[in-house]
Design a protein around this nucleic acid. Structure first.
Length: 298
DNA sequence: CTCTTAACCTGGACGC
DNA sequence: TGCGTCCAGGTTAAGA
């Protein structure tokens, strides 16, 4: 459920409570949540949380001694700060006790979320497996073009591909494409320079606005304080299939694209109008599939 | 390479 | 109220 803006909101919330604190104990309530042995979990004790980073949808606790504790919330995970004495919460899967009497509690009804201790080498591999960060200074139309190049897959599916661009999920993929006026099924590698430029502008704009509103709460998501995000009120398309477009009034279309519900405005996001000027350039019988830099899988 | 399906899981919404 | 069905913000493995 949580995408980049939600994870970033949680990161900022936890940062205040946890950075500089030492881990007194790490309690696992649901074994599969923790990727590693009990001994590996025990080794977390005594380590200091030096920094909390985010990479895509991963939260990365940088611990003293070079270990990184990675947390991924998947669909229903929540992280929140609470007094260590707080009774076990519903669906609680893990809890980190800090040396100041506070705790970070991980709850996750669907049990998809994962917490894993990573060596610095493993952390590097994780980093390398993810695509560009849409809110980093290095993000640009040029960088986005590189990320979308070399594939005819639907642009929305490519936006969801964490190895190409990190942090975007189903909500913000639809929102960004609407903001950019691009049809979700448009082949990613065939977007015009103008479309790329619009998308490169729309993505950070949408994500930043969502962060300002502390994320989108549809059902499950809560921030690091246990509160709902307010961006749901500002969504233009996600969850609004059949309702009028907030920009032009046209009834929003909804379909399944790559197994994901996809909502768009047929008027603001025309299927092909914006691509007419591109040279037809037939599918190149056997174009050498040169791998784009930055997508290395490991 | 790309697409599809199934898994992993539970809870909420909705129809009857 | 209760039951069945479908859906969900994510990711990965396997098969066509």
């Amino acid at each position: 459920m949580p995408e980049l803006p939600e994870v970033e909101t949680i990161r900022r919330d936890l940062q205040r409570h946890a950075v500089g604190r030492r881990i007194e104990d790490f309690i696992i309530r649901w074994p599969r949540t923790f990727v590693g042995t009990a001994a590996a979990a025990a080794k977390l004790r005594g380590k200091e949380i030096e920094r909390i980073d985010r990479r895509g949808k991963y939260l990365l606790l940088r611990l003293s001694g070079g270990t990184t504790l990675s947390l991924h919330l998947r669909m229903s995970g929540r992280l929140r700060a609470a007094p260590a004495a707080t009774a076990v919460l519903d669906h609680e899967r893990a809890r980190v006790l800090l040396d100041d009497g506070a705790a970070i509690v991980f709850t996750d009804p669907r049990k998809f979320g994962r917490i894993a201790p990573l060596s610095s080498a493993a952390a590097s591999r994780l980093d390398a497996s993810l695509g560009i960060e849409p809110l980093d200074p290095g993000f640009s139309a040029t960088a986005l073009r590189r990320s979308l190049a070399g594939t005819r897959r639907a642009v929305k599916s490519v936006l969801l591909d964490q190895a190409r661009i990190a942090g975007i999920g189903n909500i913000y993929a639809d929102e960004a494409l609407h903001a950019a006026g691009i049809h979700p099924a448009a082949p990613a590698g065939a977007l015009s320079e103008e479309e790329i430029a619009r998308l490169a502008a729309a993505i950070p704009t949408v994500l930043s606005a969502a962060i300002r509103h502390r994320g989108t709460t549809f059902q499950m998501y809560r921030d690091g304080q246990g509160k709902k995000g307010r961006y749901a009120y500002r969504l233009m398309v996600y969850g609004r299939g059949g309702l009028p477009c907030r920009r032009c009034g046209t009834e929003l279309s909804s379909t399944r694209l790559g197994q994901r519900t996809t909502v768009w405005c047929s008027s603001c996001q025309p299927r092909s109008a914006a691509r007419r000027s591109q040279a037809p350039s037939r599918p190149a019988a056997k174009a050498p599939r040169s791998r784009r830099p930055g997508h290395s899988k490991s």
